[in-house]
Design a binder for these strands. Sequence first.
DNA 1: ATGACGATTTACT
DNA 2: GTAAATCGTCATA
Length: 220
Amino acid sequence: MPRAGRDEGGPGPRLARTFCEVDASKLARRLIGCRLVRVREGRRLSGMIVETEAYLGVEDAAAHSFGGRRTARTEAMFARAGTAYVYFTYGMHHCMNVVCGREGEPVAVLLRALEPSEGLEEMRGRRAGRARGGAPRDVDLCSGPAKLCQAMGIDRALTMTDLIDGDALFLEAPAPGVVVRPSDLVETTRIGVDRAGEWAKRPLRWYLRGNPHVSVVAPA
DNA sequence: ATGACGATTTACT
DNA sequence: GTAAATCGTCATA
């Protein structure tokens, strides 16, 4: 099993900035097992990151920063490592990334799924109405990039947030007992980027093998 | 000013 | 499996 126990703990050590100052493929892999924490009105909402994708910047046809496109929306991708890039899409959804690499290099990691650990009731409230017939199941709370933002109360107001030193949205090291080995990760293609041609075929998505909170499981 | 589109989710056939 | 929802963003003019 990829972990010794369910992550239900409270506050833990923050991730260091240097943790994020690496290329996107590396950060995507090392973020799995870490925790994303949202604090609203003094209450913690959190979850263990179980699925990520790397976006490689200027050369990556699937990235918002492809070709060096720098606009009001993508500005956060050019910020220093550890910054949040949150964008709005399809007229109704938000997705969040962790900026990495060097400042000015528009590379980032998309957070695609969490295993919820704290604040499940509030997450259910935020996600209610989307799941038909009463409360959504736990596996429907954060099993997608827009779902996790909705569950955690993350929107565009939080783009450019510092995930290292911030107090409303930040990253923590894996909870005690959580150990993710390379063999616990499945490496596969990214989701929803078919139009990116050859870049859509690159293995730039990773998830925790067997975890029920993952958004899309790769074909066997 | 206008039109096409989207790193998605949900409901429905 | 397919289609709708829904609007900010961006390229073009």
